[in-house]
């Protein structure tokens, strides 16, 4: 006779903040994290220095945002670096979260304390997310400080607001990769396997997915007669496919948030630009509307991946 599932007693979140505090302390003191922080600071200093050299020539609007987005050969812009550094940091924070406990044989001990598994997993995820947010905020402050120091002007209110949204988008982007590496750390018993799986998926989405999306679009929606409709529908399909990758969503969010002159992320027809004054910046609210689907997409992907990890972890036997 199999008993029907009965409700559990007690809060599933008991002990959550204890786990968060412990895991964050672990992250912040780990050699792995220090190394990545060092790398981040180095990149921030390098790219911002280059950007400042470039900017000084002519006075413009949104100087601070340009600090983040200006690139000078051979250095990419700061945001370009973030696009691949944030996933790496997130993966580094999560790839051994659960299997590491298994291998150290600490999991049965921890779960024998009066907490539910829910608190442990969410605690680990939140600790990773907070750590990421902490590091990114520190770097954001560093950049603002450097900007004030070198440019000699304080940032405008709108710039601060836009760069804060950018910070938020970056944390959400990191959340996707953190949740993904958490799932792999539950699936694979060896941390090295989990790390490699996360990194290969990241490589695939970063390098190959754009190419694959283009090829798929050509196959699924071929341009047979050269009609504009055909070309447009192929371009739209390619974009839709590309947006399955969190990298695309993040790149688009950053583009619209940090470059106020960007008014559309989809292909648009000349008729849609009727009466538009090209080159004028959009207000923040409009830019946000533009990237709202991208931002919610990143958050939704994070939640979905975490839910998957949650289900897997709840069903896992804790015996080695």
């Amino acid at each position: 006779m199999v008993r029907a599932r009965e409700t559990r007693e007690g809060s599933p979140w008991r002990g959550l903040w204890v786990v968060v505090a412990k895991e964050m302390a672990d992250h912040l003191t780990s050699a792995r994290m220090r190394f990545l922080e060092f790398l981040m600071v180095l990149i921030a200093l390098g790219t911002i220095y280059m950007a400042i050299q470039n900017l000084r020539a002519g006075e413009e609007h949104f100087l601070f945002l340009k600090l983040l987005t200006t690139a000078q050969e051979p250095m990419p812009a700061f945001v370009g670096f973030l696009g691949f550094l944030v996933p790496l940091i997130a993966i580094a924070l999560g790839f051994d979260a659960v299997n590491g406990e298994f291998n150290r044989r600490t999991l049965p001990r921890i779960l024998a304390q009066p907490i539910y598994r829910d608190a442990l997993l969410l605690g680990k995820f939140l600790a990773g997310l907070f750590t990421l947010a902490l590091v990114l905020t520190a770097i954001w402050l560093l950049i603002v400080g450097m900007g004030v120091f070198r440019l000699g002007v304080p940032p405008e209110g709108e710039e601060v607001a836009r760069s804060l949204w950018f910070l938020l988008a970056t944390v959400a982007f990191g959340g996707v990769w953190l949740a993904l590496s958490l799932v792999f750390s539950i699936l694979f018993r060896a941390p090295a396997t989990a790390a490699l799986a996360s990194i290969s998926l990241w490589l695939f989405l970063t390098v190959f997915w754009g190419i694959v999306a283009g090829m798929l679009a050509q196959v699924l929606s071929p341009v047979q007669f050269g009609f504009p409709q055909e070309i447009l529908s192929q371009a739209n399909l390619e974009l839709t496919l590309a947006r399955l990758s969190p990298n695309t969503l993040y790149a688009e969010s950053v583009l619209a948030l940090l470059q106020p002159a960007v008014r559309a992320l989809n292909p648009i027809l000349p008729i849609q630009l009727h009466q538009a004054i090209l080159g004028t910046p959009l207000p923040l609210g409009q830019s946000l509307l533009l990237v709202w689907p991208q931002l919610t997409g990143l958050v939704a992907a994070t939640i979905l991946l975490f839910a998957l990890g949650y289900v897997l972890f709840q069903r896992q036997e804790i015996r080695a």
Binding site: R3, E6, T7, R8, E9, G10, R14, D26, T29, R104, R105, T106, P108, R109, A112, Q113, P114, I115, Y116
Partner: peptide, 24 residues
């Protein structure tokens, strides 16, 4: 233990086989 695991676990001490700790 199925429905009230927190009650059980706060009153019962458990030493698993080959117990491990956070080495750091």
């Amino acid at each position: 233990p199925q429905r009230q695991p927190l009650q059980v676990k706060s009153r019962v001490g458990y030493l698993p086989d080959q117990v491990g700790f956070d080495d750091e």
